[in-house]
């Protein structure tokens, strides 16, 4: 890869690179959510409080994490 294309990739003008970044961000956000929800439950937070924090419904949080925790 030449220096020119490296710079282009970092700036996000290459769709492939940009999409890869989106995917990585989504994965990172999912992992952080898993860790935070787990910790909040451990500290005694209710599903409703966690849902409010995430800005989603209680049902959505419970569906996603309820079985695991």
């Amino acid at each position: 890869m030449t220096e020119q294309t490296l710079v282009g990739a970092a700036a996000g003008d290459d769709p492939g690179e940009g999409l890869r970044a989106v995917r990585a961000l989504r994965d990172l956000a999912d992992r952080l959510e898993t860790l935070q929800v787990e910790r909040a439950r451990g500290l005694g937070w209710s599903w409703q409080e966690i849902a409010d924090g995430l800005g989603v419904s209680r049902q959505a949080v419970h569906k996603k994490h309820g079985r695991r925790l």
Partner: peptide
């Protein structure tokens, strides 16, 4: 794979 440090760095996230 997904948790791709390089791709994250490209959008300014330091993994």
């Amino acid at each position: 794979e997904p948790l791709d440090a390089g791709a994250l760095a490209a959008v300014g996230v330091d993994l």
